[in-house]
Design a protein around this nucleic acid. Structure first.
Lengths: 213, 213
DNA sequence: GATTCGGTTTACCATACAGTAAATTTTTAA
DNA sequence: TTAAAAATTTACTGTATGGTAAACCGAATC
């Protein structure tokens, strides 16, 4: 976020409505531009062309390209986490299923935008290997996502619905498979990767959880 | 590869030694530059600085940045596939183990360079979602890698060493886990990701193959 | 030993790009 | 209603970058 020098920027709590609006507009424009051109070929101009406002407003709200992209990373991550919705009082088995499905296919009735978001998300993810700050942001986010899956597994073990496996290792495995399948769908165009991954998880991974049926 | 206009470039078979040498030098310089700066921030200048030759020679041997990067992609993929070595007359179980280990940890005694190569490899992989040609090249490569794993599983099933699972699905699952663990190690800095993935594969995936012991 | 030719260097260019400054409009607050 | 502040636009700049042209070198070939 951009702090004007001199007298500094107004505090977050006093931020104008229109200012917040514009920043949202910029974020969505950034999203579309990124989605069209890819991270590597993203120009400030491209973002400008996705807005009604001129590209120079970006410099008023953000302190250059890097600051913009950092804010955008947090924006995307918030969206990701905000989009996950599971029935709180599902049994562990249903909740685990729901979480896996949402990670793989996105919130229902949003298939298209899901993959657009994921494309951008994965590109930022890979780029994080070159940027310590981005890596840190991703790590915190990743811990939350993986954690929520591990938690369900642990719950299921406690209630006796699941076999007493190493929940952390199991959760990490599932998370990894999801991530790879999504990435493969986008990088290689394997449309069926998520669906196949879902089946593979059921068939080869979750069977360790349901050993007694 | 660059084709000079006019009379065209000499056929591959007649290529000078020094010319091939230089191209190799450029490839390795590109590798180092990419590994240092990342795909997004790679400049032709950066490659030049990794060589004894000046950066302009690149334009003699390759037809611009895109052509260079395309050639480099094939170079990296060749290296990847060339580095995989398994004992031809191992039993399926050992061969599968060996292949998984090599994909996860690299050829023995090359740990460091393995991760440098992987970093570059994964960045190219993710970028492929923005480039149809690169995507195609990756797809062919990916099919070979996954195929070699599937093949081992099929062999094991035929000899009765493995349970009669869906070899394709199993092979794909293993490949996905490997890919995600490597990516996670690099993007998030999870040093133990490959080792943990190895254990998870043993514990939760391969157990479906060895159900009778 | 002159000449050709592949390969390399030096010097240079066009332009694409992020970023800035000042003018202008819109909103807020008195 | 007016003055100040915030937000946006228009016009511009500095420079980083990919690429080119012509000179230069060294090893084959005649």
């Amino acid at each position: 976020m951009c702090l004007t020098v001199g007298e500094g920027r107004m505090s977050d709590s006093r931020e104008t409505v229109s200012s917040k609006d514009t920043e949202e507009v910029i974020m969505e424009a950034t999203f579309r531009a990124l989605s069209k051109h890819g991270y590597t070929d993203l120009r400030m101009r491209d973002i400008g062309e996705e807005m009604d406002l001129t590209r120079q407003v970006i410099h008023y709200h953000f302190d250059g390209k890097y600051d913009l992209l950092s804010s955008f990373l947090e924006y995307v991550i918030d969206q990701y986490e905000g989009s996950v919705e599971v029935d709180a009082d599902d049994d562990p088995r249903s909740e685990l299923d729901a979480r896996i499905d949402q990670c793989l296919f996105g919130p229902e009735f949003e298939e298209f935008s899901h993959w657009e978001r994921m494309k951008v998300y994965h590109e930022l993810y890979t780029h994080a290997q070159n940027d310590g700050d981005h890596r840190e942001i991703f790590n915190e986010h990743y811990d939350r996502v993986r954690g929520s899956i591990i938690e369900v597994v642990e719950d299921g073990i406690e209630t006796g619905e699941f076999e007493p496996v190493d929940a952390e290792r199991m959760g990490q495995l599932i998370t990894d498979v999801i991530h790879a399948a999504r990435g493969r769908r986008m990088a290689l165009g394997h449309e069926d990767a998520p669906a196949e991954a879902r089946k593979a998880i059921d068939q080869f991974v979750l069977d360790s959880l349901y050993a007694d049926d």
